[in-house]
Write a protein that binds this DNA or RNA. Structure first.
Lengths: 342, 342
DNA sequence: TTGAAAGCGATACCAT
DNA sequence: ATGGTATCGCTTTCAA
């Protein structure tokens, strides 16, 4: 084994004929050390390629400079973007990010949190799984004084800062856009009824319809279980073959919209002429399908940055962070799938 | 601050009237401790919710049970899949994964590696950036006896296990498939000439043409700089407006293929009837465009698993790992963009 | 089968 | 301005 030994503070002290404490202070630029000594120590350290032993420092300071991040799925445009933003912001504050995923299973989520807790992350970023009800596994962090910041899928049960998408506003503007484009019978493929994001998007949809005195119909609102492409396909079919066909579909997710578009294309229903389709998330994919899929951009990257910012602040202040909600505004990305006019 | 203190070994020892060492040994099921003592200690620990201080353990054992993972880009179907596989396999061996990204900049890569090194990861998984030439920043790990496993984009300069895609075979089978579908004038939009993956795919393309005694033309091979959709579009245009038009295009990447298809559709050139298009990577996106894009699947998830497996093995054996190449086979995914027959 | 004690490397308090 | 030393929590010889 080529285990080239690193030199330690003790080595430096011995070589330079000073004490370990002086060496430590010199390297960390403490007040009350002569410039001469500082210079000498730093030069020696540099020359001998001294690297402090992080494990010892962590141990001593009871900090790891590591943030845990738990997401339902990693192979996902939205979440990988959030992680990407989080990593960037974390780097700015000299934190590293430990990533784990739960596959939307609460059992895995609990395990992941336990691992994070025992690997002594300084704080936790989490987007809970669809299954998650009880949040005891998160409370454990707070009990130990380690802050948690929730993002995207959050639980009100846990008192912590939360970074979420303004789902209401996003849905509202999507539907308003459809109305402006002349669509009059707007359906909505929604998600799981108990998930907050779904509820908010549904609310945005309903209020937008109401505000514009549009026709509504309970038959035009359907709920996915899996939020899958297949469901998008099936529900689009169901809607379009019903007695009261809509002329536009607002989908809970781009993936669902993909499925809906697939059905419409297959049924030779023209998009956007006969039926408009709009999604939510603004996946990279939305650019590549034809017609291009209009969508609601969630600014995932910025959410990641914001979440880390809040977490780091809490860590710095040695508190667990206020129970406060930060809503990030969405923005409409109009592509061909809803451009009926001009 | 609700800093509920964790109990330590010392607390246990004191309460139970035994020594710290005995407590430690009992908890870690050492030989030579009476069953009685073991039972007593374990019960007490359980009851008082004892959790060993990982930082202390790490420090003492000089291990962190953490693996560093550096990728060029995180928001990328291929890389997020590899990471996903890596996390899963790591969990199996009780390792956590620290993720960092370089945006294809060697400067960031060096920084990321330094951070990983100083946060004392037990080993490193890396896919180097396009810019990376010299690998001194990786050699540092080996010099400290910490194994490195390279994957996907690898450098021969560093002696380490490497998990790569069999680009040659993938390209060969893609081109062979085109030939079988009756295409006779096959062009190739390749990547950067100095990148190994590009070279191998080009080689697969050339050899496949040769083996089937197909027409070739230097004008049919072009090189991307960015591997972008725009380049795919432009090169497809260039190829299709040249004097000797190809009837199929093998693209270095699905993204490039997306661009090529966009041009073809815009130019009203029918896919797959007039021109066949095949990509490489098998992005999720390939499913959603129409026509569906045929592609070469790289089995990214398995690559992640394999890389971790090799790394953990090296760590366990306390060696840096052999300089050995593990090629993962690709598989052809045929969709509509190349189905000229049947 | 158990205990005492020596560290691991860095920090910070208390002297001087 | 500097040195000495206790300490963080755990593991691991060495003794008994």
């Amino acid at each position: 084994m080529p285990d080239r030994k690193r030199i330690t503070l003790k080595d430096i002290a011995k070589e330079l004929g000073i004490s370990v404490s002086t060496a430590s202070r010199a390297l960390n630029s403490y007040a009350g050390i002569s410039d001469e000594t500082v210079k000498m120590v730093k030069e020696f350290a540099e020359k001998h390629n001294y690297v402090p032993n992080t494990m010892a420092v962590n141990f001593r300071k009871n900090k790891t400079m590591t943030i845990g991040m738990v997401v339902p799925e990693l192979v996902h445009y939205f979440f990988s973007s959030v992680i990407s933003g989080a990593i960037k912001e974390a780097k700015k504050h000299h934190y590293s990010i430990l990533v784990s995923q739960t596959d939307e299973l609460v059992k895995n989520e609990i395990m992941a949190c336990r691992t994070m807790l025992s690997s002594s992350v300084d704080g936790l970023l989490i987007s809970i799984s669809n299954e998650t009800g009880n949040t005891d596994h998160l409370q454990e962090f707070l009990d130990e004084g380690r802050p948690v910041v929730q993002f995207d899928k959050v639980s009100d049960q846990l008192s912590s800062p939360k970074v979420i998408v303004d789902d209401f506003q996003g849905a509202y503007s999507a539907v308003q856009h459809l109305i402006e484009q002349g669509y009059r019978k707007i359906a909505h493929i929604n998600g799981l009824q108990h998930v907050k994001n779904s509820q908010e998007r549904l609310r945005g949809y309903s209020i937008a319809l109401g505000d514009h005195e549009m026709e509504g119909s309970s038959a035009w609102v359907v709920h996915c279980q899996e939020i899958s492409e297949a469901e998008g396909f099936d529900f689009a079919k169901q809607l379009m073959t019903s007695s009261n066909q809509p002329d536009a579909i607002f989908c809970i997710t781009d993936l669902v919209a993909m499925g809906a578009m697939k059905y419409l294309k297959q049924a030779k229903i023209s998009i956007p002429k006969e039926v408009g389709v709009i999604g939510f998330s603004n996946w990279d994919m939305a650019n590549f399908v034809s017609p291009g899929l209009s969508s609601v951009n969630q600014h995932a990257y910025q959410m990641g940055e914001k979440a880390v910012e809040l977490l780091v602040e809490a860590i710095k202040n040695n508190e667990v962070g206020k129970d406060q909600i930060f809503e990030t505004k969405t923005s409409l990305v109009v592509r061909e799938s809803t451009q009926r006019l001009g």
